[in-house]
């Protein structure tokens, strides 16, 4: 009974995501048509000659009718061909794929750190509303939200890397190459993005727990004389999971979308910096590819979160 309805639920979500993706493609495609100035001219810069212009225009397909351009863009994108960078002449898809592992490493480790901090802090704070410990958690998380990530990053570099010399201050090593080095390198940037995300998430977790802790069924749980740990774990936290999953998904997607400043501070070869450089150079194919990739990652994260909703909440699973 449940497997079928979960599959149906997810099927709808996938179909929904596909529609959103098509919309994103329209916007990404329109980007080049709408920006002021002629992208081909900009790409050529000082190398501009009429012949070179015509050649690049034809090569990029910009001389064909709009609809045809769009359809071939969609067709290419679906087969993994995102065009060629104006600047480097390399395939956009390849460039993006090269950067993807660094960004995914940073995002996943960062979110795990955020959860490790935010879950206990937020749950404790929500269950002890108005007490001193709650006030401490709220003040610290408020301060955490206000701290700029580059400042936190530089502080970590100064203390942990330069001062104590425990960890390297920058660079990235693929996990397949050397897992230990990967872990040592990802630690500080992930701690930076993780702590910033933790500050935001703590507040959401606290609010969710606080709201649930006043629910009728929590009073029912208390009226059964259950141990406090069971009341908290089985009754409060399980019901607070939906908003917690939501905010975790949003934070993960945000970090996946690129954390430029942190990537710069730690010389981290992620998507954020790549996108920033592409925008600065008006490298439209690369910008388009990066935006599309971010949209896909966002949709994937949302799909996972939706799937988890249905695991957590039988009302979603069984209705």
């Amino acid at each position: 009974m449940t497997a079928g309805s979960i599959a149906r639920f997810l099927g709808r979500r996938v179909a929904h995501s596909a529609v959103v993706l098509l919309g994103v493609m329209v916007v990404v495609f329109a980007l080049v048509q709408l920006v002021p100035g002629d992208p081909v001219r900009i790409a050529l810069g000082t190398r501009y000659t009429q012949e070179a212009y015509d050649a690049l225009r034809a090569a990029s397909g910009l001389d064909r009718p709009l609809l045809e351009q769009f359809l071939s863009y969609v067709g290419n994108a679906l087969t993994g061909d995102l065009g060629v960078s104006f600047r480097t002449g390399e395939a956009v898809a390849g460039t993006l794929l090269e950067r993807l592992p660094a960004t995914v490493s940073l995002a996943l480790v960062g979110v795990v750190i955020a959860l490790v901090v935010a879950l206990p802090a937020g749950i404790w704070s929500g269950l002890h509303e108005g007490r001193v410990s709650d006030a401490v958690v709220r003040v610290v998380s408020q301060a955490g939200v206000s701290v700029p990530d580059f400042w936190l990053g530089m502080l970590l570099i100064t203390v942990v890397a330069s001062g104590l010399g425990w960890l390297p201050s920058s660079g990235y090593v693929p996990i397949a190459e050397d897992p230990v080095q990967w872990a040592r390198r990802v630690a500080l940037p992930a701690l930076t993005v993780g702590l910033v995300a933790a500050a935001i998430m703590t507040r959401y977790v606290r609010t969710a727990v606080l709201e649930v802790s006043h629910a009728g069924y929590v009073r029912t749980a208390r009226s059964k004389g259950l141990p406090a740990s069971v009341v908290t774990g089985r009754h409060v936290v399980r019901n607070a999971l939906i908003p917690i999953l939501t905010i975790t998904g949003i934070q993960l997607a945000t970090i996946l979308g690129g954390v430029i400043v942190v990537e710069v501070v730690f010389a981290w070869p992620g998507l954020g910096r790549l996108t920033y450089d592409a925008v600065a150079a008006r490298d439209y194919p690369l910008i388009q590819g990066a935006v599309l990739l971010m949209a896909v990652m966002f949709l994937l994260v949302n799909l996972v979160v939706d799937a988890l909703y249905s695991v957590v909440d039988p009302r979603i699973r069984l209705s």
Binding site: R219, T220, L226, R238, P314
Partner: peptide, 21 residues
């Protein structure tokens, strides 16, 4: 004592049962 010697039934049955258990 709660749940053992005293049992409770509350007003609103739509909120007093845990929806996820």
């Amino acid at each position: 004592v709660h749940g053992d010697r005293v049992g409770f039934v509350f007003q609103d049955p739509s909120t007093s049962l845990n929806p996820v258990l």
